[in-house]
Structure formats: C-alpha cells, structure tokens
C-alpha cells in the first residue's frame, strides 16, 4: 500500500501541520512516511503545500507530480493541482471561497466544508482536523487511535489539553464529508 497525497491551501491555514499529523500517525502505525513541504517563496504569503507519502514499503521518491489524493483548501490550489490527481484518484476540497469547482470526471470528488463547520463548533483552528477526519473516512489508511497518538507526538505538551477538541473535530469530519 502506498498513498501519495498533496495538501494545499493558504499559508497559515494549518496545511503543513495537517501533513505533519498525518506523517506522525503513519509512524504510530508502523508505516514508512515522508513529508515534503514547499518551503520556498510560496511560504512567504500566498499558498503552501506539502506532499505526504504513507506506505507499507520503503518510499522511493518523496517528490511526485501525480497524486492518489489531493486535499485542496483554496481556489489557487484547486486550479494548480486538480490536474495532478491520478485518474481514478480522489480530490477532497473545502467549498469555502471556491468559485470554480472541480470539473474532472475521471476522479472522485468529495467536499468537506470544514471552515464553516469549525466556525459552527466555535473552534476555527481545528478546521484542518475536520478535513483530516474527512480524508480518513474516504481513505481509512490510518486508525483513528493512531491519529490521536500522532497528534500527541506532533503537538508540544502545553497544547495537549486541546486534544479532545481536535478529536471531536476529526469525528465531525468523518460525518460531514460528502461525495459531489
């Protein structure tokens, strides 16, 4: 099993940290992982993206151009990466601020309105965990308990009181993701 994922959105949206939590969760499940962030000029304002690969085998290239799954969190990223999803792959996006929706017919598109939902839950910062929950519903490659363990590993101890809130957000994501 190898899952090649791109997560893309605005800088500061929690794109890199969502990828980090995924990677840690993979480690907790005894998988091979790689986490390759964009660190260039893109980081300084504008868009941020990270390639996460989770595999049961040794990972060859940490950088690929085509993905099994694209998790898209803004319009620029949708425009940039919609065509990078492998035929038969999946695209998950948050509808917030999207004016041109995904158009491809040879992939499966899911929508998870996490920004809206996080606002409703009064915890806007857990928005990325809602998205992650949605992803895990579609691709249950990591057990939820390992995600919680991964979360504990990637969060500094002083934030561990926030874990129950993040857990709730994960579960909410599982519930609200829907096929388009």
């Amino acid at each position: 099993m190898t899952e090649e994922i791109i997560i893309a959105g605005f800088g500061g949206q929690g794109v890199l940290s969502m990828g980090k939590i995924m990677a840690y969760s993979g480690v907790m499940q005894d998988m091979e992982v790689s986490w390759m962030p964009s660190y260039g000029p893109e980081m300084r304002g504008g868009t941020a993206n990270v390639i996460v690969i989770i595999s049961s085998d040794r990972i060859s290239s940490p950088i690929v151009r085509n993905f099994d799954t694209a998790i898209i969190l803004n319009q620029q990223s949708l425009d940039k990466f919609e065509n990078s999803v492998k035929p038969g792959g999946i695209l998950i996006y948050d509808g917030n601020g999207i004016t041109r929706h995904p158009e491809r017919k040879d992939i499966t598109v899911y929508r998870v309105d996490a920004v809206e939902e996080a606002g409703r839950m009064n915890s806007p910062k857990t928005f990325n965990m809602i998205v992650l929950g949605g992803f895990l519903k579609i691709k249950p490659i990591i057990k939820l308990e390992n995600v919680i363990k991964g979360l504990k590993k990637s969060l500094p101890e002083r934030y561990h009181n926030l874990i129950p809130m993040n857990e709730k957000a994960l579960e909410r994501g599982l519930e609200i993701i829907r096929k388009v």
């Binding site: 480690v27 091979e32 992982v33 986490w35 962030p37 660190y39 940490p62």
Partner: peptide
C-alpha cells in the same frame, strides 16, 4: 540538497 534538508522521514 534542500529537499533532503527540509523533508521529514523516520
């Protein structure tokens, strides 16, 4: 190189 420097792995 920058890729190996910046990426995370086990």
């Amino acid at each position: 190189d920058g890729a190996i420097g910046q990426m995370m792995e086990k």
